[in-house]
C-alpha cells in the first residue's frame, strides 16, 4: 500500500474503532437519526409525498450525515488534544492532512450508515415507498455530497487545530447548517441576506440535487445549476482545507495550540 493510502486507511480504522468503543456512538449513529426522522416525519406527515420525501426523508438523512461527519470530525480534534494524542500524531513525519482525512473518512462511513438508517426508517414508519426515479444520478450526487461534507469537516477540523476557541463555533454550527441549507424547510422562507450564506454551503445544493434525483427531474436547468454549485463549493472547500492545513503546520507550532496547556 502506498504511504498516503496507508496513513488514510490506518487513521480511518483507528477512528472507527474508537467510535465503536464510545457509548455515544449508538446515540449519534442510530438513536439521533431515528428521533430526528420521527420528528420530521410527524411535521410533514400531512403534506404532499414530494414534501415528505424532500424534508422528512432526504432532509433528515442529510442532517444526520452532517452531524456524524462534520460535528464528530471537528470534535475529534478537541478530544485528541485533551488526550495528548494530537501533538503526537502532529509530530509524526506524515502530513497531518492525510491523518485527519482518514479520521474524517471513518466518520463518513458511519455517517453514511446513519443516513441509510434514517432514510429507510422514516419511509417504513410513515409507510412512504422509497422510490428513487433516477438511481445512477442519485448515487453520483450522493457520492459527491459525501466528498463535499468531508471537505467541510476537514476545514472545521483544521480551524480547531489552530484555535482552541473554535469549539464554541463548532457547537453552534450544527443548527446553523440545519437552518440555512433547506434540510428542514425550504430556504425561500429565509430573508434574502441569509440565502446568500445558504448558497455558500454545499449541503444546500446536495439536498436539492438528491430531491431532484428522487423525483426524476434531472434534465432541468435547475439540476445543472445546482450541480455546478455543488462542484464549485466542494472544490472551494478542498482548496481552503489544503491551505488551512498548510498554515496549521506552521501556526500550531508558533502559537502552541496543539495541547491543552
Amino acid at each position: 500500500m502506498k504511504p498516503i493510502l496507508r496513513i488514510v486507511y490506518s487513521s480511518m480504522k483507528i477512528q472507527m474503532k474508537q467510535t465503536f468503543a464510545r457509548e455515544m456512538f449508538r446515540y449519534i449513529v442510530i438513536i439521533f437519526p431515528l428521533f430526528t426522522g420521527l420528528l420530521m416525519g410527524f411535521v410533514y406527515m400531512d403534506k404532499s409525498t414530494a414534501d415528505f420525501v424532500s424534508y422528512a426523508m432526504v432532509g433528515t438523512a442529510t442532517m444526520t450525515m452532517w452531524s456524524s461527519i462534520a460535528f464528530s470530525s471537528a470534535s475529534d480534534v478537541q478530544r485528541e488534544r485533551f488526550m495528548g494524542a494530537l501533538a503526537q500524531i502532529f509530530n509524526t513525519p506524515e502530513k497531518f492532512y492525510y491523518i485527519m482525512l482518514g479520521k474524517v473518512l471513518g466518520n463518513t462511513l458511519l455517517g453514511a450508515v446513519s443516513m441509510v438508517i434514517s432514510f429507510i426508517f422514516v419511509g417504513a414508519v410513515f409507510k412512504v415507498p422509497i422510490n428513487i426515479v433516477n438511481v445512477p444520478v442519485f448515487l453520483a450526487v450522493f457520492f459527491i455530497s459525501v466528498v463535499s461534507y468531508m471537505m467541510i469537516a476537514m476545514m472545521l477540523s483544521g480551524v480547531l487545530a489552530v484555535s482552541r476557541q473554535a469549539r464554541t463555533l463548532m457547537n453552534s454550527m450544527d443548527y446553523i447548517i440545519f437552518l440555512l441549507t433547506g434540510s428542514a424547510f425550504p430556504i425561500t422562507v429565509l430573508p434574502i441576506y441569509l440565502r446568500f450564506f445558504s448558497y455558500a454551503l454545499s449541503p444546500t445544493y446536495a439536498i436539492k440535487l438528491l430531491r431532484l434525483a428522487i423525483t426524476g427531474s434531472v434534465n432541468t436547468s435547475a439540476f445543472y445549476l445546482y450541480f455546478v454549485g455543488l462542484i464549485m463549493t466542494t472544490v472551494l472547500y478542498f482548496v481552503v482545507s489544503l491551505g488551512l492545513y498548510r498554515t496549521i503546520e506552521l501556526r500550531a507550532r508558533v502559537n502552541a495550540t496543539l495541547e491543552v496547556i
Binding site: I14, Q18, A21, M83, G84, A87, Q88
Partner: peptide, 8 residues
C-alpha cells in the same frame, strides 16, 4: 498517562 488512545 496521556498521549495514548485509551479506548484501543
Amino acid at each position: 498517562e496521556r498521549s495514548l488512545y485509551w479506548r484501543l
